[in-house]
Design a protein around this nucleic acid. Structure first.
Length: 882
RNA sequence: GGGCGCGUAGCUCAGUGGGAGAGCGCUCGCUUCACACGCGAGAGGUCGCAGGUUCGAAACCCGCCGCGCCCACCA
């Protein structure tokens, strides 16, 4: 593509009589698809590739205004980079794996997954789904339904993205549950296993009792819940009181120790002794630990297995025994009072009391044990009502518990120093977002638990041998072969076994779990780059992968820095020993006008499609693009109207500039034209600089401000010359200059606005240019400045300054003239009989260069000047009848 | 409790050492030959509070107040 495109009209402009935005979205999105406008050029060398790790939206929800907001930011950057000549790798993924989809499928079809049920190839979901009495189906059947439902969602999402004008290469589409993503995810896991970065452990794990699955630290959130603080009496053997305070009395049977701070004098007499638990008479030691806060409660704290994460710390560091009462279903389990570990001073009583609790949920058991404690006189004083922060699984409805189970972990704690270093190598936009990453990495307390006891996810590619006694030998996992991937160990077979051996002594079992959804999402750069690599000719895939990965950009919202961003950095570190991308652009949220995060319910009222229909894609994009990187932005339909105005303005300014252009005498000779082009060059430089820093909002603001000034002042000032009748050589020269300036500036404006308003920019570009504006070259400030030198010598700095001042003074005076007409309540075309301009000698001298244009623009007959310290004008309007 | 960000016109925000600004909203005016999906003009602010640095502070430093987000050992 030649840079001359900036100046040359490719063909006679075809400008509609009445330009309109109607219909341009359908017209151009179809054309872009037909022409392959956004297709990634797989032959581009690595230094020309700009690869984007697009966030795959969760398809089981609905896209809301917040998605439109942040995806528009990325698209503006993608379009800029494409115009800069980059081969933009811009894929789209759908995150359809995981719990949200499971829940949705359960409700939609009225089914429940039961892994013990056999696969039914002819299964059809019930005609009238019942949430109350779901049909139990096999895991493969369940997964089929998940796929069926997500496919519909994905079509709707793609439709919306196309309507919004995202310049995605739709041939690069993946799903996180698809075979390709599963293969990448399982291959990575097997590599980690081989290198000892993945391990399994029977250990206390965060557990959601409703979903009955392990969850990760990153998936927790705090919620304020009312609670009651009870003062409960433990006793030493010689009958002395040891008082503790607790909000979780139901865990007293699981108590394994009482703790005090080592320096707490008040507890000195107790430390080192044993005490008996109330009701159950279990003997537990009183120990010390520096984490105990002597100011809290009585200064004595009960350690249970397990009430919270601190209990786990104490249990581990003090080598305490396990005495676990809570089952995976969130109810208190039966326990063998009197057996090893469950000794009691009064076994019969312990059994009797515990019978009142077994089988109850946590809340029921808490209520009951408080009654029992009160009856036994072991509660001291009245309970205090408090509000406390309780940890919940972010998608859960009851607090998480800590349950001991066998889980798979990825090593993270061994790599935190390296991960912080990687975070410092990453370019953050805005830079302060790095702090959130460092806080998170620095605050990690354990390795990443990646196994989930769920169904719709990527299975672990593992089986375990079953020995002759029928015991599963978890410590000897049988990994899948690379060539088998992806595998589902519940239906596929490990090498050397037959299906008949499944679950039999001497046979095998498949790993029943699936991976955490983030365990797959954390590989999106590798999944996306792998898509291109798989499509490459044989033998070239690896080389192509290396041209795409690591990528240039990860765009995402700030709330998932601790999950998605962190885990992606971790996986790239573990698998590739490098960063997955060089830049992270963090977007904010969309807030309600009342400054709260826009809620799902409201998001459903104001659907993105509804907005696009009402205001148009360019208008919605304009609002989105005005939200600065990392900053939360209020939802504002008013701004969309402003965006629509800008789009209409571009239509009309283009019409004006292109109508009846003279084809000869292309001299850029007039001072105001030259000054405008020089100012335009500065605007281009600012927009470019902003985009290079990923600040699309600043780029838009600079372009927009200058474009409105151009329309309001420059276009008005040059209208007279633009319509010159051509009777004199000076008139013809002036018209030719304006014509040339309009063509140059219009071409630049159309391209500067293209990343933000792709539809209208393409529309006006098509009136006079061949090819898509989105494949045109991003305007270049230097090139524009050089254009000023095309007639004779490039202007000297001093000359350029005078020309710029001429434009400034002419615009200032024009404003004063307009003011006078406005105050006189006369139309703007009302003739001015006489104009007196007072100003500094320098500015008056500069004004001479633009006097002709000013007179035409203001319909001014006579202009006089007088020297003064600052601008002041006297306007004498011609009589109204004249 | 710790960290980060924010506090400028009624609203949304730009401005980071030397004139307090934009858009929207509001008021008034104008059928002007690109545009009534328009154009022009106007009103409106102790730049959160208090100190300090400086010839000069909305901006830099210290403290405080308020709002938001993230994190925390939540007994």
């Amino acid at each position: 593509m030649s840079s001359d495109q900036v100046t040359e009209i490719a063909r006679t402009p075809r400008v509609p009589d009445r330009p309109t935005l109607d219909g341009i979205e359908a017209k151009w999105s179809e054309a872009w698809e037909r022409e392959g406008c956004y297709r990634f050029d797989a032959r581009a060398p690595r230094e020309q590739v700009f690869a984007i790790d697009t966030p795959p939206p969760t398809v089981s929800g609905s896209l809301h205004v917040g998605h439109v907001f942040s995806y528009t930011h990325t698209d503006a950057v993608a379009r800029y980079q494409r115009m800069r000549g980059k081969a933009v790798f811009y894929p789209m993924g759908w995150d359809d794996n995981g719990l949200p989809t499971e829940r949705r499928v359960q409700n939609h079809f009225g089914v429940r997954c039961d892994p013990s049920v056999a696969y039914d190839p002819g299964f059809q979901p019930p005609a009238e789904p019942s949430e109350k009495e779901p049909v139990s189906i096999s895991r493969p059947n369940f997964v089929e339904l998940c796929l069926r439902l997500t496919e519909t969602d994905e079509r709707a999402f793609e439709e919306l993205w196309r309507r919004l004008g995202l310049s995605v290469d739709w041939s690069l589409t993946y799903t996180t549950i698809g075979a390709h993503a599963q293969r990448v995810s399982q291959r990575s896991f097997l590599g980690l296993l081989a290198r000892g970065e993945a391990y399994q452990l029977e250990a206390p794990t965060l557990w959601d009792v409703d979903f009955q699955t392990a969850v990760a630290q990153a998936e927790l959130e705090d919620r304020e819940r009312p609670g009651a603080m009870n003062r409960v009496r433990f006793r030493t053997e010689d009958g002395a009181d040891a008082l503790i305070e607790t909000t979780r009395p139901e865990l007293i049977p699981a108590c394994v120790a009482l703790l005090a701070h080592p320096d707490d004098q008040r507890q000195r007499a107790l430390v080192g002794k044993d005490v008996l638990t109330p009701l159950f008479g279990t003997r537990v030691p009183v120990l010390t630990h520096p984490l105990v806060d002597p100011e809290k409660g009585t200064g004595l704290v009960m350690v249970c297995t397990f009430g919270d994460l601190t209990d786990v710390v104490w249990w581990r560091e003090l080598s305490l025994p396990v005495r676990s009462v809570l089952g995976a279903d969130g109810r208190l389990a039966e326990v063998p009072w009197g057996a090893a570990g469950w000794e009691s001073e009064d076994v019969e009583r312990a059994r009797r009391e515990y019978e009142q609790l077994a089988g109850r949920t946590v809340n029921q058991a808490r209520k009951r044990i408080l009654e029992l404690l009160a009856e036994a006189g072991e509660i001291v004083g009245e309970p205090t009502q408090i509000t406390r922060a309780v940890k919940f699984f972010e998608k859960g409805e009851r607090p998480v518990e800590i349950v001991t189970s066998r889980q798979w972990f990825l090593r993270t704690m061994a790599h935190t120093d390296k991960l912080i270093e990687r975070g410092r190598q990453l370019h953050w936009h805005p830079p302060y977002m790095r702090a959130r990453y460092e806080d998170w990495v620095g605050g990690l307390t354990g390795d990443w638990c990646v196994s989930r006891q769920r169904f719709f996810g990527v299975p672990f590619p593992l089986w375990y041998p079953v020995d002759q006694q029928g015991i599963v030998r978890y410590e000897q996992p049988i990994p899948a072969e690379q060539s088998q991937l992806p595998v589902d160990p519940s239906t596929d077979l490990p090498a050397g076994y037959t299906e008949a051996q499944r679950g039999q002594p001497g046979g095998f079992v498949g790993d029943p779990d699936v991976m955490d959804t983030w365990a797959t999402s954390s590989l999106t750069p590798q999944i996306a780059a792998g898509l291109a690599a798989e499509a490459a000719p044989a033998g070239e895939g690896e080389e192509l992968f290396a041209r795409v990965f690591p990528m240039a950009l990860r765009p995402q919202a700030h709330d998932i820095i601790r999950t998605w961003l962190f885990s992606t950095v971790l996986r790239a570190q573990l698998d590739h020993d490098q960063l997955p991308w060089s830049n992270a652009a963090i977007s904010g949220w969309v807030l309600d006008p009342d400054r709260k995060k826009m809620s799902k319910s409201k998001g459903n009222v104001v659907t993105p499609m509804h907005l696009l229909e009402e205001y148009g894609a360019d208008a919605v994009r304009y609002w989105a693009a005005s939200g600065r990187p990392g900053t939360d932005t209020a939802f504002d339909a008013q701004q969309m109207k402003v965006g629509r105005r800008l789009a209409v303005k571009l239509l009309n300014a283009s019409k004006f500039a292109l109508a009846d252009l003279p084809r000869e005498g292309d001299a850029l000779g007039s001072p105001l034209d030259r000054a405008m082009i020089a100012r335009l060059a500065r605007a281009v430089a600012e927009a470019t600089e902003s985009f290079e820093d990923y600040d699309y909002a600043r780029a838009l603001e600079r372009v927009e401000v200058f474009f409105w000034w151009y329309c309001d002042y420059y276009l008005e000032l040059v209208k007279g010359r633009r319509y010159d009748s051509g009777q004199t050589q000076a008139g013809r020269d002036g018209a030719a200059s304006v014509s040339r300036a309009l063509r140059r500036s219009l071409s630049v404006f159309q391209r500067l606005l293209a990343p933000f308003l792709p539809f209208v920019a393409e529309e006006v570009w098509s009136w006079w240019q061949d090819g898509s504006v989105h494949r045109a070259r991003w305007p270049d400030a230097r090139e524009l400045r050089e254009a000023l030198g095309e007639v004779g010598e490039a202007p000297a700095a001093g000359e350029a300054a005078v020309e710029d001042e001429a434009l400034a003074v002419a615009a200032d005076v024009l404003k004063e003239v307009r003011k006078a007409k406005s105050e006189a309540r006369r139309p703007m075309r009302a003739p001015v009989a006489r104009l007196l301009v007072r100003d500094t000698p320098q500015r008056l001298a500069a004004l001479q260069l633009g006097l002709g244009d000013l007179r035409a623009a203001g319909s001014i007959d006579l202009v006089e000047t007088a020297e003064a310290d600052e601008l002041a004008v006297e306007v004498e309007l011609a009589p109204e009848d004249a």
